[in-house]
Amino acid sequence: MTDATATDSRSGTDRAMIYFAERARWRGPEVALWIGAFALAFLFPSRALLFNEVAILALFALSLDLVLGYAGIVSLGHGAFFGLGAYAAGLLAKAGAGAAPLSDPTLGLLFAALVCAAVGYVTSFLVLRGSDLTRLMVTLGVALIFQEIANRMAWLTGGADGLQGVAPANILGMFEFDLYGRNAYLYSLTVLMVLFVFARKIVHSPFGISLRAIKGNSLRAGAIGIPVNRRLNGAYTLGAAYAGVAGALLAQTTAFVSLDVLDFHRSADVMLIVVFGGVGTLYGAVVGAAAFKAMYDVLAAATPQYWEFWLGLVLVLLVLFVRGGVMGLLGAFYARLQRVGGRP
């Protein structure tokens, strides 16, 4: 009772601040999730390579979630930045021939992020024009141009044979990429967590909140003084940089880059992951990536050639019956629990 009166005596701005601070608060399950993810490396060391792929996929999905879930830009060519980051980090590591400073993994990540951010910023001006359909085609077109370039510039990228001889130096000069992938997983997971925390901060910052306003109604957002296009440019650039880091992680931990990193299926897969996990939730990307990889493992083992069929079926069913993805379902379940618990 006293609480309610105390809240009422505060000004509107204060109440808004409290509301946003409450939203941004770290919750128990979140912390448990991250501790659990690190524990996996020690509990199941033999599956570390798989976990590594999940972590990379989660980061890639996180980058699309920033673009799609927060900025509301439907992109069919997000794989372009994943591939660009992979090639950037791969070429840098190759140039350094396995020795620091050029082959240093952290430097590789930074380099990939910078390259992708620059390209993302430039292309964001192309993407932001027009309707959903135009955006879709422009992103797809840009991705195809990248794929063509990588394919044709075989002297640089290795073309269809892939980029050989990517040898990153030890992580922070101390930890070697071992054969079983445990260090690789810990490395990718750490990068994922750091970038996740950063993304979480951004999403709950005024920048992130203004993005949500733009996604809700860009006309009204503009009317209350939000520079709509500048914000969208920023979000797209950020998403590109994140995707680049994910690509760089793949290049470093597998010591190989092939044309496959730019393939259309990457863009489609990551979209499925984000939608499956829940658009605009951040954790949806992590949950979706884990679910996707698990599904892939089971289905592709059963019918390796026809895995695409099940992928398509999941997409179709998802659109028809499940709204909000896994995170949406969890949220609804949680809300119900609270209602049931609060009633007596």
Binding site: D132, L133, L136, M271, F309, G312, L315
Partner: peptide
Amino acid sequence: LYDKTHLEQVLFTIGLTFMAMATVDY
């Protein structure tokens, strides 16, 4: 799907495409 968002339409039709491709492959 006519009254759904473009994102859902895209996902749905990509899903159908994948299914068609795998079916023909089979």
